[in-house]
Computed example of a mutant assay.
Amino acid sequence: MIDPVSLGRRLHALRTGRGLALSALAREAGVSVSMLSAIERGEKTPTVVVLSRIADGLGWSSSRLLADLETDRVIVRRAAEQDHVAEPGGWHRTVLTPVVPGVNFEWIRTTLPAGCDAGEFPAYAPGSHEFVAVESGTLWLGVDSAEHVLAAGDSVYFPADVTHSYANRGDEPCEYHVAALVMRPRTGRVQ
């Protein structure tokens, strides 16, 4: 398990050691200043994707950033520790998985209220994958130029290196799970 306070101290030391203001690293990493600040204070544990963005912003790999911070091979993320995100438009997502060094995998539970469009998501790097399973309601999933209508109990896989979208055009809420392996291209920085 990774201690969020130790991770926060390491991030703070790396950022200040490079002479970067909080806002500069946040901009470089593509995360909010408030999120980065909470992570540095040890109040939030970043998702795999957010951690990868921060590592990229510092010019490091995620595994190098997390080296020596892992204290246990079994990582338990209690319900109270899960990230709950209320998105604009009324939809809600919960990141269920813990952060694991070197693993770009996330399992997310999302609830879309009736008539909600979560919008379009950009293509991830080649080698990225998404699995979606609908728990309740109906989900309209756009993958590239095709649309797939999924009912409760349906599941789908798609390579996530294309634009994709999620919407609920029905009259009842839709709850679904996304299991994503997201590859992120590395920039030319020293790893």
Rank of each mutant, 00 (worst) to 15 (best):
P122V: 04
V103S: 04
V99Y: 06
P113D: 11
C116G: 05
H164Q: 00
L96E: 01
V103C: 12
D154P: 03
E130C: 09
V100L: 15
L112P: 01
H177M: 03
E175N: 02
H129A: 15
F121A: 11
A133W: 02
G142N: 00
E87C: 15
V156L: 10
G90K: 03
E106R: 04
N168S: 12
F105T: 11
H164M: 07
S145G: 12
A123R: 07
H92S: 14
W107N: 02
L112K: 01
N168W: 06
G115R: 12
L141F: 04
E147G: 05
L139W: 09
E106D: 05
P122Q: 10
T138I: 10
G102R: 10
D154L: 01
V85Q: 05
D117T: 03
S155N: 15
Y157M: 09
Y124M: 12
V162H: 00
A118I: 10
W107V: 14
G142F: 03
C174W: 01
N168D: 02
L96Y: 07
L139N: 08
G142Q: 04
W140L: 13
G142L: 00
P98H: 05
A146E: 15
A152R: 07
E175L: 02
A118L: 07
Y166W: 02
Y157F: 08
G153A: 13
L139E: 07
V100I: 13
L96S: 11
G142Y: 06
G153L: 12
A118W: 11
V100F: 03
L96N: 05
D161K: 03
W140K: 15
V95L: 06
E106N: 12
S145F: 04
I108A: 06
T94L: 15
E135T: 13
W107H: 14
T110S: 01
A133S: 13
N104E: 05
G90Q: 00
A151G: 13
A160Y: 02
V99E: 09
V103Q: 11
R169H: 11
P88I: 00
V85E: 08
V162K: 01
E135Y: 08
G119M: 06
V103D: 05
P122C: 08
F121L: 15
V156D: 02
E106Q: 09
V103M: 14
T163I: 04
F121Y: 15
T111K: 04
A133N: 09
V134A: 14
V162Y: 01
L150A: 06
H148R: 10
D154C: 09
A151W: 06
L141M: 13
T110R: 11
D117S: 04
Y166K: 04
V100H: 02
A86F: 01
G90T: 02
E87K: 14
R169I: 03
C116R: 07
L150N: 01
L141N: 10
W107I: 15
H148W: 11
A125Y: 12
P98R: 01
S145D: 15
T97R: 10
D161F: 00
R169M: 03
R169L: 08
E135A: 15
V162R: 06
R169E: 03
A167Q: 00
G102A: 13
C116T: 07
T163V: 13
H92K: 15
L139P: 02
N104S: 14
G170Q: 05
H148E: 02
H177G: 00
Y176I: 03
L112Y: 06
A118P: 11
V156E: 07
E172D: 05
G127M: 07
P173W: 05
F121M: 12
A152W: 04
E172K: 09
Y124I: 11
